[in-house]
Write a protein that binds this DNA or RNA. Sequence first.
RNA 1: GCCCUCAUCGUCUAUCGGUUAGGACAGGAGAUUCUCAAUCUUCAAAGCGGGGUUCGAUUCCCCGUGGGGGCACCA
Length: 465
Amino acid sequence: MSHVRVRFAPSPTGFFHIGSARTALFNWLYARHTGGTFILRIEDTDKERNSEVFLQVIYESLSWLGLNWDEGPKVGSNGGGDFGPYRQSERGEIYRRHVEQLMQAGRAYEKDGAIWFKLLGERYETFDDHRKKTVSKVKVPPVVIEDQIRGRVERLEDEDFVIVRSDGNPVFHLVNVVDDITMNVTHIIRGEDHLSNTSKHVHLFEGFGVKPPAFAHIPLILKQNGPGKMSKRDQGALIEEYQQRGYLPEALVNFLCLLGWNPGDDREKMPIADVIRLFDLPGVNQSNARFDDKKLAHMNMAYLLELSGETFVTRAREYFQRQPATPVTTAALAADEAYFSEVMLLAQPKVKGIEELPAYSVYFFTEEYPIDPKVRDKLMSKGDPKARLRELLEALRAPEADLTSDAAIEALMKSLAEKNAVGFGDYQAVTRLALSGTNAGPSITAMIRVLGRERVLVRIEWFLA
RNA sequence: GCCCUCAUCGUCUAUCGGUUAGGACAGGAGAUUCUCAAUCUUCAAAGCGGGGUUCGAUUCCCCGUGGGGGCACCA
């Protein structure tokens, strides 16, 4: 166990989004890399905007992503620790004591019912153009931050600021710093949007007579289209959404690792253990990264492809169960388990994501599958596909026809093609259209085998009629 | 407006002064295949502009431009 202690400190004021997830991930990676401690702290001082629902979302999303926390609220096997409570709403007494300490030291004072942190230095009045009012400023040297990612950053903090609101509630800056002090946090890894708060925080640390921890400000994730950083309202911003859509968490985590970090070589898809081994703060990029759902989808597909068939079927079933009932999903869930598995196994190497499964497998589960008119028109425009289909129908009807293996079906179709001096494809395309309504799907032999003799014969007859 | 920060293909990125500037996603073409995917091959695609420093700058420095963040009794 190293002395490194990092924390992820979300506030439950909205859904858990991808930027927060990456901040959590980088903290977690650093803790795991150093053998340190990953703390989850809930910053719920804003009583107006907090909600229990959002808190649950945070727990669930972190768990789903596999970001287990060593200290923090107890949820399942996560959490615990000797530096609690880990919810700021339960730490009021600690904050009061620390504010008192600042008052005693002459570093805080009351004004307009609120408590302000006092900067030390010569005071003067000046007009602020932005806020259109006269403000009181203090001559202090700029704060120097030796950021682990961005290097040396200087920022001037020249105004006293509120640390306890007039309603008695402590402000973010105060609680954040007090918690980091009392929880012995050694590295503050957070989004770049906090970089400009850091000067306030450094003053506070010094006000408490504590050496500030190391800072590491990670770049932001920008929205895919349009200006600005990714926010909760943007398409693809919510972790929950990926969970519902059947994305694999390991794929999302891998993708997130690569947004602002890389192993230093060409590797992209890599096990989390390798990332943990190689991850370090100086390796994190300094520039913002634009979110790219295509690359995420590709990563997801790559992980999907190497899933064991068994796991894939389990994931698929879970997905179908979560979906609102439709003819396809109900039929799929009502279907024989072995049949469901076989269908899913045919789909696994073909789909880009779990969410494509219902659409991809409609014709396996219902008779209400649509016939793609474009495919039909194109196919029917040349040769005599219906004649081929009739020939195949006869062959399949024969009592000696073996439809129990792909090889047998392939042999049957090939000998038929040879006999009639046409190509295998002449049978394949029209049969596929009759059985599935499209020109995409698993191999025609597998399709016939899995659908089974009865269904196949009925569909071909119906199609010919 | 002020402060901070960043800058390589459309996107994510490699390069720690000397490279035909590499990889991945997306896009084009081809191969393979019973279709569609996957896979493989391949093509196109980048150092924001201007000054320096240097024998030599994508790389170091300055200015500009552009992007991003912040400037609350929100977190």
